[in-house]
Amino acid sequence: MTDKKMVEALIFSKPESLTDVPTHYCPGCTHGVAHRLIAETIDEMGMRENTVGVAPVGCSVFAYNYFNMDFAEAAHGRAPAMATGFKRVNPDMNVFTYQGDGDLASIGAAEILHAAGRGEMITVIFINNAIYGMTGGQMAPTTLPGQKTTSSPLGRDIESHGFPLKMCEILSQLDGSAYIVRRSLHDPANIRKAKKAIRQAFEVQRQGLGFSMVELLSNCPTNWKMTAEDSLEWIEENMIPYFPLGDFKVHPAIAKSKKG
């Protein structure tokens, strides 16, 4: 009688770049997905021990509890400046910021614009969920026209509040930016594309090609007041038409390697 040996093969595990800590994020929130994509990428590139992250103010203020690497916590909107200061004295390290839409596109608009303009060798992961999550659902600089929030209870009125800011479109115009793309986290196929983009962005930094940013369209079931499932559909039906997915700027060196 032949023994049927049980063969144990590990096919899925927590990335080394994540800590084994339950997150404080709401059920169904895509922050966890974004964290995992970054962590997997850093693991794959073997950069965990040479990476410093800069956390923002907002829902992901405690990101440093979940990433298993050195981290600094910035003031609201100032992560790109803080990352700049750090990177300039550690040019051989991998430095990234993780910022939400209020942090990056509103209070930190000057810092992100000039970091991109200088071609700062940092990578920015920009979580755009069109709302202020942590403070309880107020209007963001990326809130869609007509979208109801607690500070635009009748819906964002463009006559009064103006239009959402399209950060990829803006930053890609700057000569200092080397890699500016928008992806979405609303389904598995797009999540895979998002991961590839994060890899490219870190690659741009590693090769010293310039400023890199990956915008990730994300959800907020709690403050959008819908189920997690509905929130993912809402991204597809409402956010993507206004914030089209795509590559807004890809440095030729990276574009080439992509084809190759």
């Binding site: 410093v52 400046a81 200061g85 810092e111």
Partner: peptide, 12 residues
């Protein structure tokens, strides 16, 4: 505003 936050980053 940015200058002092750059200082903060480098001090870290």
């Amino acid at each position: 505003v940015a200058a002092i936050n750059m200082v903060y980053g480098a001090a870290c």
